[in-house]
Design a protein around this nucleic acid. Structure first.
Lengths: 141, 141
DNA sequence: CTAAGTGTACTATGAATGTTAGTACAGTTA
DNA sequence: TAACTGTACTAACATTCATAGTACACTTAG
């Protein structure tokens, strides 16, 4: 499962939460699928049932899973979660753009750098990516 | 000075470090300018000299300030720091793009959203922003 | 019904971290 | 010399994370 990384300084329960969130968001875990029981997962991760319980409580609080007492924890549908996650990502990116501006990192520079990274990494991101607020502008400004 | 926020859960020393890093990167604090003494800053922030000392030690470790015993702490030049920070920001943005892809957030969608944010916020970011890996593509999309 | 599995709620303990407090010492400078 | 600087300790306290153990309620397969 590889749910946790002991070289990671973050608390175990937090890593469990994040990993399940990702799996749910990616659709690897589907709606109404049963989560591992707190006890079995604790054994698998060589950790404590209380730690897993803490993670599950947090996942439930955030709306990613639901609980049926005596039966187990189950995955919720992920549609609204995905929208929230998209918003988080957009906000984070915009915040980074602003941070860059703050230290005198011009937008042109940023975009050039990102373009370079894409060229290095790609295939997956593929072609024709444009953040053009306006391609054909002599305009607005 | 507003260096720390007691509603922030992060350690005080960490907030001090981050705030001075920003001030140095932004050029608000200039090279060879003297930092507040550990004792005076501790009083100003209603905290302990040891906490400030811990922050200053970290800032020195990261190359943002230098120390002259008996005289004080002073700001280092920020040119190489800025380059490092730029790299950090680019890496963070690219990572977010990948994270978005992971949950099926298409590049087009992301860029549209960011465009919208820019339109809302702007003035400063202004015009003609293009991340076009390829402008003139009739292709793919 | 019983047994074995689920979640949940406690208490107690230990380790690590962040913070405060106090003391002491060394270097610099007016 | 006096008043600043940084630095290095030790001690104590609170909080957080994790472990351990126990107990109880619910569900389901037998």
């Amino acid at each position: 499962m590889n749910l946790i990384d002991y070289h990671d300084s973050r608390p175990i329960y937090e890593q469990i939460v994040e990993n399940f969130k990702l799996q749910i968001l990616k659709g690897i875990l589907r709606a109404d699928e049963q989560m591992p029981s707190v006890r079995s997962l604790a054994i698998e991760l060589s950790t404590n049932p209380n730690t897993v319980q803490k993670a599950y409580a947090e996942l439930e609080r955030q709306g990613y899973i639901y609980t049926i007492k005596g039966r187990g924890n189950f995955v919720k549908g992920n549609t609204s979660m995905i929208d929230n996650k998209k918003r988080e990502i957009i906000d984070a990116i915009v915040e980074l753009f602003r941070e860059a501006e703050d230290i005198g990192f011009s937008l042109e520079e940023i975009l050039d750098e990102i373009k370079n990274e894409f060229k290095k990494l790609d295939k997956s991101i593929g072609a024709g990516v444009s953040l053009g607020v306006d391609e054909n502008r002599g305009g607005k400004a």
